[in-house]
Amino acid sequence: MAQMTMIQAITDALRCELKNDDNVLVFGEDVGVNGGVFRATEGLQKEFGVDRVFDTPLAESGIGGLAVGLCLTGFRPVPEIQFFGFVYEVMDSISGQLARYRYRTGNTFNMPVTIRSPFGGGVHTPEMHSDSLEGLMAQQPGLKVVIPSTPYDAKGLLISSIRDNDPVVFLEHLKLYRSFREEVPEESYTIPLGKADVKREGTDLSIFAYGLMVHESLRAAEELAKEGYSVEVVDLRTISPLDIDTIVASVEKTNRAIVVQEAQKQAGIAANVVAEINERAILSLEAPVLRVAAPDTIYPFPQAENIWLPNYKDIIETAKKVLTF
């Protein structure tokens, strides 16, 4: 096994699938010779040729349309949207077209597309590069939305996404690309979509999180352990559909829960998780389920970013409210 960063694990997953299936095509802005602005597609054009890994004109809607048309001719496209803040330019292709094709055609066509895109804050980007817009995607029926938090998960989930016969939006947190390495098998493996993962077991409180916030939650759990609290951290991994079974099982065990998201609080994934817990496990609860999220402003200018983004201290504060309720 090799030690890999998340970006290396992603490149490795793309390589596995380009090898595995001739219908897999990787394309987007600067993904060819340049290997992508974050090097997610490093070396792939050289290895698989310009027919399989190629640069497109700079137009996101065109990239989305290309994906739809390529599916109609039997391909399995893996387009990259250079930054997820640019998704507004391709919303019709994603929500109006890809997500609806199977449904619109009564199961006669399907769209096995995986849209990869970096998102997330904390790296001082210009405007429209860091926003957490996963809620927009999760609100659209017909899409699966996957957000890995570790290199190992990233590889297995990306391979599953590419093999899935329905459209998947695969979001890669910018700050996790190179933040740490872990052991990642060099061979191909899959992690099922729609399955959460208990990243740390505990008995007093469940923290549900995804993306970068999994790591902030783990740090909070570590600190809380020093004070004698046993905290479970559940990485949702797929935010649409949610893994209800794992969420409910965890709440039934700990009887207390908080949900953490990097996105603004309004109309978010966390609210959805809270609602599911209320509908399915309210009698297990010893305290209200609270949320940790960013304030409901537009994503901040870089100088305010570190205060604006939720961190482990915010999580500890909210966790204590629930633990001592």
Partner: peptide, 23 residues
């Protein structure tokens, strides 16, 4: 494919089908 309602969406998709046919 079924008739398109979003005026213009069929144009970008046609670029995709044509690319597929070429490949």
């Amino acid at each position: 494919v079924p008739p398109q309602i979003i005026i213009g969406a069929q144009y970008v998709q046609t670029a995709g089908v044509a690319l597929g046919l070429k490949k």
